[in-house]
């Protein structure tokens, strides 16, 4: 669906953001794009959508060069940025203004999303809180039925019940020919939704694997002590014990802790490289 090949990008000559970066995004997945502040997550999303142009290499969506910003591409890709913009009209008015631009827009789904989020379609956007406007923007994004849905920090500003509703609605719209890319720092909010993890650090991709692949290689567990645990490759102390990671030698099942995985990857990039053959 999206293909970045040997891409280089920099805002200035001194600071390179991406160097020879290659990445393929496929349908049927919900990707979690993780990275530290300033790692280039938003820039990567902008390069994928043609909002920024790579200095060399290529960025294509369905084989179309993103630089062209072609209508065919724009009809199939929706980008919801962290800071949303909505015109000063009623929710219904917004729908009248923009829904026609998306050929597969699902009005019924939009209504349902608004109902789930408890938003009145007759309310004016100007009088809404940030969280409410974000709910309108998320509802619209999901209803466009675009094959690629990119969301930058989608749960920022959402209250606790709305985060659950968001996860439910996002899981509903995913299919084999669609994908969702979620860039986030709030890994706990989206842990149950993400099925593929991309970790970005220092202008390169450290990890790009499915949760299943990660589970096959790593075992996440809580230990009361690290004594005698010679196979622990990473651990974090918490009041409830040590969150530890060991190689999964016996094919055991465990729940991937994305926060631990992220910290482990950024602190031991070479180990991860060896384990996942990047």
């Amino acid at each position: 669906m999206i293909e970045l090949k040997n891409m280089n990008f920099a805002y200035s000559k001194k600071k390179k953001i991406f160097e020879d970066l290659s990445l393929t995004i496929e349908g049927g997945h919900i990707y979690g794009l993780l990275g530290k502040n300033g790692a280039g997550k938003t820039t990567l999303l902008k390069l994928m959508t043609g909002l920024r142009f790579p200095q060399s290499g290529s960025s294509t969506v369905f084989g179309i060069d993103t630089k062209k910003r072609s209508v065919k591409m724009l009809e199939e890709i929706y980008f919801l940025p962290e800071e949303i913009w909505l015109p000063d009209v009623q929710v219904d008015g917004y729908l009248k203004m923009y829904a026609n631009s998306y050929p597969k827009f699902d009005h019924e789904l939009f209504k349902r999303c608004l109902t789930e989020f408890e938003i009145n379609p007759e309310d004016k956007m100007k009088k809404m809180s940030f969280g409410q406007r974000k709910k309108v923007a998320i509802s619209f994004a999901l209803s466009t039925q675009c094959k690629i849905l990119i969301m930058d920090e989608p749960t920022n500003g959402l209250d606790i019940p709305s985060k659950g509703q968001f996860r439910k609605l996002a899981a509903e719209v995913i299919s084999d020919d669609r994908c969702i890319i979620l860039s986030t720092h709030q890994v706990r909010d989206l842990e149950s939704l993400i099925d593929t993890v991309i970790i970005l650090d220092e202008s390169r991709i450290l990890l790009n694997n499915t949760i299943e692949q990660i589970c096959n290689k790593l075992l996440f567990k809580t230990l009361m002590t690290l004594e005698g645990q010679n196979d622990v490759i990473y651990s974090e102390f918490t009041p409830r014990g040590f969150l530890a990671v060991t190689p999964n030698m016996n094919g055991m099942d465990s729940k991937v802790d994305l926060e631990v995985l992220f910290n482990m990857t950024t602190q031991n990039p070479n180990l991860i490289k060896q384990m996942f053959n990047h």
């Binding site: 909002l51 209508v71 913009w85 923009y98 631009s101």
Partner: peptide, 19 residues
């Protein structure tokens, strides 16, 4: 005026229509 801010600029350029 959409081009004055990043968020509205993204909205403007991502709306399906040619330049």
């Amino acid at each position: 005026s959409a081009l004055l801010h990043t968020s509205s600029g993204i909205h403007y350029y991502m709306t399906p229509a040619s330049i």
